[in-house]
Amino acid sequence: MEHPVQFLSEAGHRLMGILHVPHGPGRPAGYGLVLLNIGLHYRVCHNRLFVKLARALSREGYHVLRFDTHGVGDSEGEIEAGSVLVHFDRVQRGLFVPDTRAALDHLSRELGLERFVLAGLCGGALTAIHTAAEDRRVQGVIFIAGPMTVTSPTEDREFHPWEAGQWLAGYRARLRNPRAWARLVSGKSDYGMMVRALAVKMHHRWCQMWTGSALGRPGAAPGGHFNTHYLDSFQRFVGRGGKVLFVFPELDKTAEEFEIYFDKPILTQTRAFEGKYEILRIERANHSFTLAESQERLRDGVLTWLRTA
């Protein structure tokens, strides 16, 4: 069972959401889940991922709210036209935290719930951890494919070595396709992208060979592009007993970022974080969980963690 809800944000915008109420054989959990939209995408998420997830969770006894932050989807407010990267940078630094607090207030007021788990994908994962750091009602965070690096609007978009590898793999896969050759010869191919991908990948290889740095920049160390706001929020949240489930799709650059910037150098090296988190890596999954099997693994992993954590 689900029904639309509207509530006011701290800034006075009316926000739109869908509340899923428990209706299956599962016993009501006594706490609520809030699914946070990706950056500027609205509450259903890519390929209705959150609709399917919320419906599955409500069948298992959870109250689940999906809602649109201000200026997104069906909610009031404006996010002015401009570069997605500029807006995403603001999301990474907590743009939607006040809206998320308002969502928790609404659930507390209407349903009497006082404990929450926040789940978000990509920018939503960062909104979740930032909110959790400052709101004691949040007990758990499901951090799905959240980026570990900051996308600064003042810099050109960095072409990630992982992305370059994906582009080159795509070109390799099309080598035997006559249509691809026809596009190449007729000038329809994106030569600039080919050259750029090749250059980034070669540079990355060279750096790995000569400096041992996996970051693709000689001498670079976690800190340069690392989102320190995220680290601060994570430390504060787990420091007061919060639990985190990290979910990373295997075929997504956030998985590599997580390993390079956070898992290896920080997470596994810090005793204070032990027992506060779990990591779920989903094979053959991409950033938007396109394949049905990856959606099922995400759902099952989330349910298992909710039951046991």
Partner: peptide, 11 residues
Amino acid sequence: LATQTLVYREI
């Protein structure tokens, strides 16, 4: 096809 390329590294 793009998903196949990503997942299987081939079409």
